[in-house]
Computed example of a mutant assay.
Amino acid sequence: QDGLASNTIYDAIIVGTLSLLSLLAGMFLQIKSYFFVGAGVLLLNVFLQTRPYWGNMPWWFYLLIAGLILITVASFNEWNKQKVNKGETTFIMVLKEKVISTMKKWD
């Protein structure tokens, strides 16, 4: 908690290293809880440590980012629908099935 509350570079490195170790341990030992806790803490650490940068952006920049995300998701969804209607499988669908089947084997 101290590492996330204070915005020093040493705390960020310590929390980031520990979360990466948890993420890697979860991958190698195939334990879901280690993997997801490591990924969550790593993302939280990145968001909290970069808060001074993204917290001072103008409102239109947030609107631009949100619009780009919505357009990208809609375009990908439409492309995926067209591929499925033709009977083809997309790379994302194959990757999703591999990840799900692999995660079901983990503890």
Rank of each mutant, 00 (worst) to 15 (best):
Q1M: 08
Q1A: 06
Q1T: 05
Q1I: 06
Q1E: 03
D2Y: 02
L4E: 01
L4G: 03
L4V: 04
L4Y: 05
A5R: 11
N7I: 10
T8D: 14
T8I: 09
T8C: 08
I9R: 14
Y10V: 08
A12F: 03
I13N: 01
I14Y: 00
I14P: 00
I14E: 00
L20Y: 03
L20C: 08
L21C: 04
L21A: 09
L21D: 01
S22V: 02
A25G: 13
A25Y: 10
G26T: 04
G26M: 03
Q30T: 13
I31H: 15
K32E: 12
F35E: 05
F36M: 10
F36G: 07
F36D: 06
A39N: 06
G40A: 14
G40P: 02
G40H: 03
V41W: 09
V41L: 11
V41S: 05
V41R: 07
V41K: 05
L43R: 02
L43D: 08
L44H: 05
L44N: 04
L44F: 07
L44Q: 06
N45R: 02
V46H: 03
V46L: 11
F47M: 09
F47R: 02
Q49N: 05
Q49K: 03
T50G: 00
P52I: 05
Y53K: 01
W54H: 03
W54C: 02
G55L: 05
N56Q: 10
N56C: 07
N56S: 12
W59Q: 15
F61Q: 13
L63Q: 14
L63M: 14
L64I: 12
L64A: 15
I65E: 12
I65Y: 06
I65Q: 07
A66R: 05
A66C: 11
L68I: 10
L68R: 11
L70W: 13
I71S: 13
V73H: 08
V73I: 14
V73R: 08
V73G: 01
A74W: 13
S75H: 10
E78F: 04
E78Y: 04
W79T: 11
W79I: 06
K81I: 02
Q82F: 02
Q82P: 00
K86S: 12
K86D: 13
E88N: 12
F91L: 14
M93A: 15
M93H: 14
E97F: 06
E97H: 09
E97M: 10
K98P: 07
K98I: 12
V99E: 03
V99F: 05
I100D: 06
S101D: 13
T102N: 07
T102R: 04
M103I: 11
K104R: 14
K105M: 07
K105I: 03
W106I: 11
W106G: 13
